[in-house]
Design a protein around this nucleic acid. Structure first.
Length: 560
RNA sequence: UGGGGAGUCGCCAAGUGGUAAGGCAGCGGCCUUUGGAGCCGCCAUUCGGAGGUUCGAAUCCUCCCUCCCCAGCCA
């Protein structure tokens, strides 16, 4: 028997490097790390990095650490750290050791190595003010000049550094700087700051420290301590790599990690920077970090996205060094793809229109069997009640249908899914001329949805039995911004989509969904995928629309 | 106008001197008890531009153009 091998997905440049390092024996195993700063929630862009780091480790039998980059006590909070851990786990990744690591765990070692640099004459305490330092740094086209404190002796530097640590100086009085080259064309090498004084409690080390290492200083040795082999980060750190290597070179670290940069993920119709997401939250443009319109992992989770769909998305967008803006449509495709296979189907009507089936006996009702998922017979069937009055979607009826409208219209017969064929006999209107009810007849011979004579209606409608329907709230979401690039015009808030949330207060659902737990996902047939919101209570169900189903009729309408 | 990156279909992305993968989107068709899903087909004579090397170039060389990042005691 011959098997046709599907062509293997080409390796991205990072996996190529990893494979080569393994093949050449440079490394026996691969170690990566995902290093979030706990100053905000994780978003879909982080998901790409998470999938890359944890994915590479898993694929090559290595490990990946979750390490908090908590070197700046000003903006970091334990609450964010908690949420990040939850999100990484929810995505389906297990970090090495089962517990997160922290750059702050290395503060003692980092400080010791700072003294090491001072001792070798590779770092000095500078006492310039921030403004002076900026002036001395030069510009992109002009070299900087040496600080007058650059020539301090080792002993004085050591003394000053120790006193900085001891808390003898106020914030900003001194900094520890690497002594590299003030004339370097790479401004990151113009004696970068290693430590700054910050009299502030840290969310983990409390009041132990009043000097904190900068990211540039903390990251390389932290990677080395963990024996990270491939330190994957985004493109903006590319110019920092010489500094990364300088530190690895000049510190007595136990391993030599390599930094590799890749392009971060951008999505259209949304913003991705933590600063902007924070503003959306604090200024009340959304209900929180987990608002279903947010591109955060928490938001996507509440929206109804599955971990698998997000992992899949990350895989499809690929990894390269090219700046990119992914179409949010790809993300939506990924959830639909997953949910189509896994979400049980159910019938619900968002904008109910009463239909009275006049030849169906009053007081009678029955249960009809219908598949839970036509894609997967193993998901079984369920029974839904049916009786004389049902609700259909208002959009599924037109009094004067255009040619391509196949749904219900006066005199026309359609199929009610898994139930009967019904024919609209008349339209009931209120004094203002609004359609308030339809009258219809049904064909008892079509029970279950098939006609003995083989006739086939052009349309099948979803419906809900009025007598047993449960009322619920449904939140319909649209993109948060109404332009592809919200940051383009300067004020991204000006591009907020005022209709990003529409609340349907009185949707009707088949009774089988009663009591569904938060985050339970369904496909409402012909409408889309919906997920129970945590706001739901026993008294009232609340659903979020995760994604619509593709709607070719809507396309016809839009085209005209 | 310093340094560092990147330019292949509307959006991603393979391709590593031998004659442009794939996915999303789009467009046709088939099928259908979801106008869903599924299935089939179409969708770059051309790789930022111009020269050059070569039997042969998206891949090599030269020049040019465009975009992104760096001057936080942020990460």
């Amino acid at each position: 028997m011959t098997t046709t091998e599907a062509p293997a997905r080409a390796l991205d440049f990072i996996r190529e490097i990893v494979e080569e390092d393994l093949r050449s024996g440079k490394h026996q195993t691969v170690v990566t790390r995902f290093p979030p700063e706990p100053n905000g929630y994780l978003h879909i862009g982080h998901a790409k990095s998470i999938a890359l780091n944890f994915g590479v480790a898993a694929e090559y039998g290595g490990r990946c650490n979750l390490r908090f980059d908590d070197t700046n006590p000003e903006k970091e909070e334990a609450e964010y750290a908690r949420a990040i851990i939850e999100d990484v786990r929810w995505l389906g990744y297990e970090f090495a050791g089962g517990e997160p690591l922290h750059a702050s765990d290395y503060f003692d070692q980092l400080y010791e190595w700072a003294e090491h640099l001072v001792t070798r004459g590779l770092a000095y305490v500078d006492s310039l003010s921030a403004e002076e330092m900026r002036a001395y740094r030069g510009t992109l086209t002009e070299p900087g000049k040496d600080s007058p404190y650059r020539t301090r002796g080792v002993d004085e530097n050591l003394d000053l550094l120790r006193r900085m640590r001891a808390g003898e100086f106020p914030d900003g009085a001194h900094v520890l700087r690497a002594k590299i080259d003030m004339a370097s064309p790479n401004v990151n090498l113009r004696d970068p700051v290693l430590y700054r004084i910050r009299h502030e409690d840290h969310h983990r080390t409390g009041g132990k420290w009043c000097i904190y290492p900068m990211y540039d200083y903390a990251h390389p040795p932290s990677d080395a301590i963990e024996h990270v082999t491939h330190s994957l980060c985004t493109l903006e750190f590319e110019a920092h790599r010489p500094l990364y290597d300088w530190l690895i070179e000049n510190l007595p670290v136990p391993s030599r990690p390599r930094q590799i940069e890749f392009a971060r993920l951008n999505l259209n119709y949304t913003v991705m920077s933590k600063r902007k997401l924070l503003r959306l939250v604090t200024e009340g443009h959304v209900r929180g970090w987990d608002d279903p319109r947010m591109p955060t992992i928490a938001g996507l989770r509440r929206r109804g996205y599955t971990p698998a769909s997000i992992r899949n998305f990350a895989e499809r967008v690929g990894v390269a060094k090219r700046e990119n803006v992914i179409d949010v449509g790809l993300l939506e495709f990924c959830v639909r793809e997953d949910l189509n296979k896994t979400a049980p189907r159910v019938m619900g009507v968002l904008r109910p229109l009463r239909v009275v089936i006049e030849n169906y006996p009053e007081g009678q009702s029955e249960e009809l069997e219908t598949p839970n998922n036509p894609e997967d017979p193993s998901m079984g069937t369920r029974r839904v009640p049916f009786s004389r009055v049902v609700y259909i979607e208002r959009d599924d009826f037109m009094e004067e249908p255009p040619k391509k409208f196949f749904r219900l219209a006066p005199g026309r017969e359609v199929r009610l899914r898994s139930a009967y064929f019904v024919t609209c006999t008349s339209v009931v209107k209120d004094d203002a001329g609004n359609i308030i009810e339809l009258r219809a007849t049904y064909d008892p011979a079509t029970r279950g949805g098939d006609a003995p004579d083989g006739r086939r209606p052009k349309a099948t409608l979803h419906w809900v039995d009025a007598a047993s329907a449960i009322d619920c709230e449904v939140r319909l979401y649209d993109r948060l911004f109404n332009v592809e690039d919200p940051e383009a015009g300067g004020d991204f808030l000006a591009n907020l989509n005022p209709r990003s949330l529409e609340v349907v207060a009185d949707a009707k659902l088949e009774p089988t969904v009663r009591g569904a737990a938060p985050l339970t996902r369904y496909q409402f047939e012909r409408l889309g995928y919906f997920c129970v919101d945590p706001d739901a209570s026993d008294a009232r169900l609340v659903f979020n629309r995760t994604a619509t189903l593709k709607d070719s009729w809507a396309k016809v309408v839009a085209a005209t």
